[in-house]
Design a binder for these strands. Structure first.
Lengths: 223, 223
DNA sequence: ATAAACCAGATTGGATCCAATATTCAATAT
DNA sequence: ATATTGAATATTGGATCCAATCTGGTTTAT
């Protein structure tokens, strides 16, 4: 029998659809920091009951993307400057290890894809696309790594500061500099120098941290 | 008026009570790896409906402690040897940073508490108490750190391997060695040598990893 | 006029009910 | 006897309903 088979049990549940959509909206900054997430409203938007919405929200809370208080509901989580700095420090610790593990495992095809994304990032003119391409570039390189637990941690850390990173990319020299640093990291990967790629990644993250903290002396402090 | 006040809005919701209880049962190994979590059964145990149970389970999944498949339910997550190794590697990366940050912030009182726990650990005879005291000791030292995000990560990583650590403590020379290493870490903290405490912590974790992997060449591989 | 009491709508937390899927086991056909 | 079909039961996913709490404005007492 010839049938294009697919795992039907893998179809998404309502709660996971809502979760993905909310996560995306939050990290892209479409929902503002501190803004409440009304269960009713979201349920109407997705044509479901509040049950899947609540499961999605509780998962978002576990990820640190929202903060809920009993009988008061959930709001998009904010970060103080100190917390933002800490998350960048964690990224600077974890992501270099991921790329070190990834470099020897990168196929030609993967590197070609990374090069495309790197170029697309440098050429992008739409501020909204910056963030997507920036993340796509890094994800591509990291995906070769077999350290999936490290990647989980990095993904979550990136999620939490994604909004600020996007805001920072559009202002100042964020784009130019990021573009140059991306290219350097990519080159290190291509010549197979894992240590160099690791070091450059660490510097890339530290630079982003410094630049970001300079531009937001403190900000909301929604602690 | 003299009343021991408490924040009534902080009273626990049913779902968080269930979450805490399940988490504890899982990391202590009271529920075996691969064992299914029946919503009905749990709901009956806590005298609630399945709704809070489901929220608790979805949070546990987000923490990586259970794995769920649609319409099939949740089972306690297991780790392959490779995954276990990876988690120890992450711990060896993150926890030394936490203790480095913590050392200069440790009060005399905190150090006294840590010393008590260290002694209690070495003196413990009940295998079940080993795990609690081991964790209590480390948590006490870490609690002085202001890196709460790092601590979140470490807590979760520790949760995921807690079962194995407990199993390993009871066998072989696990206890003796851990006791000696704890004492060395504590001393470094007391003399205020953050770098030494950091290094010793890293070695402590690496040693635990080696010892553990030696005893379980592969194990379940519930991937 | 001001501040406490209070009432009505909005919102969340939880219970109960129904639908969709999985699992088990008996029935049937080869 | 074995494999396939089909029905009964168990279990999960989701919808609807009720209770508890919050919020904002209004009333009332001083």
């Amino acid at each position: 029998m010839k049938l294009k088979s697919m795992d039907i049990s893998a179809t998404a549940s309502a709660s996971s659809i809502v979760f993905d959509a909310l996560r995306k909206a939050i990290i892209e900054g479409q929902i503002e920091e501190g803004e409440p997430l009304r269960q009713d409203e979201i349920a109407r938007l997705f044509n479901t009951s509040r049950i899947p919405v609540r499961e999605a929200i509780s998962r978002l809370e576990e990820q640190g993307l929202v903060r809920t208080r009993r009988y008061k509901g959930a709001v998009v989580a904010g970060l103080s400057a100190k917390e933002t700095a800490e998350i960048f420090d964690l990224r600077a610790l974890v992501e270099p290890e991921i790329i070190r593990d990834a470099v020897p495992r990168m196929s030609r095809q993967l590197l070609a894809g990374a090069r495309d994304k790197c170029a697309a990032f440098s050429a992008a003119t739409d501020p909204m696309a910056y963030g997507d391409l920036n993340r796509a570039f890094h994800e591509t390189l990291y995906s070769a790594s077999e350290l999936k637990f490290f990647q989980e941690i990095a993904d979550n850390a990136i999620d939490r500061v994604e909004r600020q990173v996007r805001a920072q990319l559009v202002m100042s020299d964020g784009m130019d500099r990021a573009g140059r640093e991306h290219f350097a990291i990519l080159e290190a990967c291509e010549i197979g120098d894992a240590d160099l790629a690791s070091t450059l990644t660490r510097e890339h993250i530290r630079g982003a941290k410094e630049s970001l903290l300079k531009h937001l002396p403190d900000l909301p402090t929604t602690t």
